[in-house]
Design a protein around this nucleic acid. Structure first.
Lengths: 237, 237
DNA sequence: AGCGCACTACGTACGGCGTACGTAACTAGG
DNA sequence: CCTAGTTACGTACGCCGTACGTAGTGCGCT
């Protein structure tokens, strides 16, 4: 019976340094940084165990001493860039602070375009995620709602920001990955949508597209979205 | 010069049937259904071109006559399950209708647990996505805000639901994929978090966890989240 | 001090992946 | 009826994650 039932499985629970043998050549931070560098430069699909090992200058299989499965490498990456969040002394205006948090998260995801995709699959609270959530809660001190609601606010904020940026990036990446210019890509897109709208099956959507004065301003749309979200948490007067 | 600069690239823009040769053995719907069956049974990572071809009973490379790249297969899958959305005559109460939409989306994602992960990477409006959005807009007819705001409402609703279910599924899958029971998994998780909280570095989070009476009711939390979101769109009185 | 063992390092190898490419069969348009 | 465009599909290439075996290393115990 018995035997190894698979190790702790939550990578943050396993100690970085074991007691016995020679000391490791790298830290988790080194590995995460290497993986982040690769993903930033060549995209998430370029992050392979071989490539990360190459970046570090070690054999491929040596990586498995630090990271039991590739999925854990992803968790390391998310935690590493979460550490880039700059924290500040709360202003006393929780809405202003939350807007600042959201804008910072959006900037972070633009710097690391692979981040939204990984956010959907992450399970637990990494060290830097804990720091981040704690900071949000401190900023929410002036808000007079139950603590649970504050957690839910943080979760919702992250959700909408993540998906908003994911959409931003999906259209941008389409334009970049193909040998077309962005105008051509968007022209094809518009033409397709126009064709669909012309069928008359989607009158409400057609109305939306026809009355749109031009391309939407992403910054303004982002701000409106956040404002509406925060409105839902304002205590009833 | 020139030559082929890569085809239309938006799979919905390319016609399903070409003019000339023998008639295709399958439709896109067949292929999508096969892929969905595999993903439902064995997870998204089991969806490979070979496996789908096997399910259809054809050679692997024959699939590329229907689907130029694997990414397009994913789009087909998302569109296929989006067609499972049941549409109804609007009730006149836009909040009730939006709640129903959200609950239906959540149920859909529980039926197809791979869906949230794919939603983050999808680019355009597939036929069934158009149907779905149009239905939401119809339900929002009684809401007196600009049309653009209605689109933004639908987008936010989908974002929040997607990430909520993604979190639900991530914890559930962790528990299932390991040879542990769910209680053991959650025990490890709690122990880890308790250890972190004991450091005193996260007093606000510690307060949240300490005052939680027990495991949260996912249905109730889901409902609260939606209610707050919709509140942000209620026209100012 | 010195032994033993837990750990690190890493090469090899296996099965599976996406898909480029070449070939044969087939059918609709001229 | 011919022929050009399409379908069908087998082969092959270069990746991928990672199981496993072996050798070296230095901490902790006796």
């Amino acid at each position: 019976m018995a035997g190894r039932a698979a190790e702790p499985e939550v990578i943050w629970a396993r100690p970085e340094r074991m007691g016995r043998g020679p000391k490791p050549a790298f830290s988790r931070a080194d590995i995460a940084a290497a993986a982040v560098r690769i993903a930033d430069a060549d995209g998430l699909e370029a992050v392979s165990m071989r490539r990360v090992a190459g970046e570090l200058g070690c054999g491929t299989m040596s990586l498995y001493n630090y990271v039991p499965r590739k999925e854990d490498l992803y968790e390391l990456m998310v935690d590493a860039v979460s550490g880039e969040h700059e924290l500040w002394e709360p202003s006393g205006d929780w809405r202003a602070d939350m807007l600042r948090v959201a804008r910072q998260t959006r900037a972070l995801m633009h710097r690391h375009p692979w981040l939204p995709r990984l956010m959907s699959g992450i399970y637990g609270f990494s060290p830097n995620a804990l720091r981040y959530v704690e900071h949000c809660l401190v900023c929410l001190d002036p808000l007079e709602v139950p603590n649970g609601a504050k957690m839910e606010l943080v979760a919702m904020l992250n959700s909408v920001v993540t998906m908003y940026v994911a959409n931003e990036l999906a259209t941008a990446e389409r334009a970049r990955s193909l040998p077309w210019s962005e105008e051509q890509e968007s022209a094809v897109r518009i033409a397709y949508l126009a064709g669909r709208m012309a069928t008359g099956r989607y009158p409400r959507m057609a109305a939306v597209f026809s009355e749109a004065p031009g391309p939407v301003d992403p910054e303004a749309a982002f701000g409106r979205m956040l404002w509406r979200l925060l409105d839902g948490f304002e205590p009833k007067s």
